[in-house]
Simulated scan of single mutants.
Amino acid sequence: MIRVSRRRSLAFVVTCLAAPSIATVALADVGVATGTKLYEHTLLKAKPGLRDDLGKYIRANWFPMDQKGVENGIFTSYWLLEDTGENAAWDYVMVVGYPTELGFGEPRAIEVFQAIRKAHAEVKIGGKGLRELGEIVGNHRLKLTQSQ
Rank of each mutant, 00 (worst) to 15 (best):
M1T: 07
I2E: 08
R3P: 10
V4N: 12
V4L: 14
S5N: 10
R6D: 07
R6S: 15
R6M: 08
R7N: 11
R8P: 00
S9G: 15
S9Y: 15
A11D: 08
F12H: 01
F12D: 00
V14Y: 02
V14T: 11
C16S: 12
C16V: 00
L17S: 12
A18M: 09
I22S: 14
A23S: 15
A23L: 00
T24E: 15
L27I: 03
A28R: 14
D29S: 15
D29H: 14
D29T: 15
V30C: 09
V30M: 11
T34G: 13
G35M: 08
T36S: 11
T36L: 07
Y39E: 08
Y39M: 00
E40D: 06
E40V: 14
H41L: 15
H41N: 11
T42Y: 11
T42E: 12
L43A: 02
L44Q: 08
K45H: 07
K45C: 05
A46D: 06
A46M: 07
G49E: 11
G49F: 04
L50I: 02
L50K: 11
R51K: 14
R51N: 10
D52W: 04
D53Q: 15
L54D: 04
L54K: 02
G55P: 02
Y57H: 11
I58H: 09
R59Q: 14
R59E: 14
N61E: 08
N61D: 13
W62A: 14
F63W: 03
P64Q: 00
P64L: 05
D66P: 01
Q67R: 14
Q67Y: 06
K68C: 00
K68M: 07
K68D: 07
G69H: 04
V70T: 02
E71A: 12
E71Y: 06
F75M: 05
F75K: 10
S77F: 07
S77E: 13
Y78G: 03
Y78A: 01
Y78M: 06
L80R: 03
L81Q: 13
L81S: 04
E82K: 13
E82W: 07
T84V: 05
E86D: 13
E86H: 06
W90H: 06
D91W: 00
D91V: 01
D91L: 05
Y92Q: 06
V93Y: 06
M94Q: 11
M94I: 15
V96K: 15
V96E: 10
G97C: 08
G97E: 02
P99M: 02
P99L: 01
T100Y: 00
L102N: 02
L102D: 11
G103D: 02
G103W: 01
G103Q: 07
F104C: 07
G105T: 12
V112M: 01
F113K: 05
A115D: 10
I116R: 02
A119C: 04
A119S: 11
A119F: 06
H120T: 08
E122C: 05
V123T: 13
V123E: 11
K124G: 06
K124P: 10
I125S: 07
I125L: 00
G126H: 08
G129Y: 11
G129I: 04
L130R: 04
E132M: 01
E132D: 12
E135Q: 03
E135M: 03
E135D: 11
N139R: 15
H140I: 10
R141H: 10
R141P: 06
L142K: 06
L142S: 15
L142D: 13
K143H: 08
K143S: 09
L144S: 01
Q146I: 13
